[in-house]
Amino acid sequence: MFGLKSDWSLELPERYFTLEDYEGGVARWCPGCGDLAVLTAVQKILRDEQQPPEKTVCVSGIGCSSRFPHYMHTYGFHGLHGRALPVACGVKSRRPDLDVWVATGDGDCCSIGAGHWIHATRYNMDMVVMLFDNAVYGLTKKQTSPTSPRGLKTNTHPMGSWLPPLDPLCAMLGFTNVSFVAQTVDWNPVHLHATLREAHKHRGMSFVRILQRCPTYTAAVFEELQRDPSRLLLLKGDDNVAVDPAVMKIFPNQAEHDPSDIGAARALAETGSQGEKVPVGILFRDASRPCYEDFTMQGLGISAEDKLAGLKRELDKFAV
């Protein structure tokens, strides 16, 4: 069962964590908010993997979804709007022993923090980046976001948004050193859980775009996708997200996809960005992409005496 590894049958672990061990404050998202499903999925994954709560750090920016760390009973840092990734990079780069999860929204990641998004992808630190994409600014009460679909009426575009929406998957698949890109939906907890679990297993920056319903402001945006699963395309295959056959049956459209094929991944993302055959599953994965912390931790194992001797040499440089 969950978390019981075979060798533990001989030796009982000192600590066994239940779901409650990962539950922080009571979530104050709106009823029916897709964020709640993500929260549960992450707590389950940590419980399944028996990850000690103190080894996990949840980092977020600002927005509805960025309240995520407060609802997790782990270490958490709720930072600045757009700056979740730099803070997470600061933590992860110096503490590779920690399990870092980033909660960011479409405004936080794809608008004010877009510069960091490109570069964090290139640094490729080992962390899970969850993009809670509800296609609107929710916390600030309904303004157009970069991923808002054309025609969405918001307080900033009362006649309807007119720019074509930014597609985070297309963007990610164009960034240098991208190592993991997946998409899932909040309303299918099995697929959501399985996708995040794959992301967590991957070594490198695992980017998961979660299509996330906002019942308050964009109820209509994902309604059709939710009601009509034929608009989605389930990616399957040996290397893809594995879900229960009963769950797979929900998806009329399924396609074999090899996540090592970035060309095919880009084509899927491009088609999905048109609103038809929106792919769910792993689009791209390459575990061989270099991770930032591999380089920066090199050469740091110096003894205290050597450091002191080096320091004295440095101070004495050019001494008279």
Binding site: V87, G90, L300
Partner: peptide, 26 residues
């Protein structure tokens, strides 16, 4: 680096200070 110093040339000024804050938190 031989003094145990780590530098991070960030993508911008904001990322630079945020990474420093992240490191302090860590």
């Amino acid at each position: 680096k031989h003094h145990g110093v780590v530098t991070f040339q960030a993508e911008d000024e904001i990322a630079a200070v945020c990474a420093a804050i992240g490191a302090s938190y860590a």
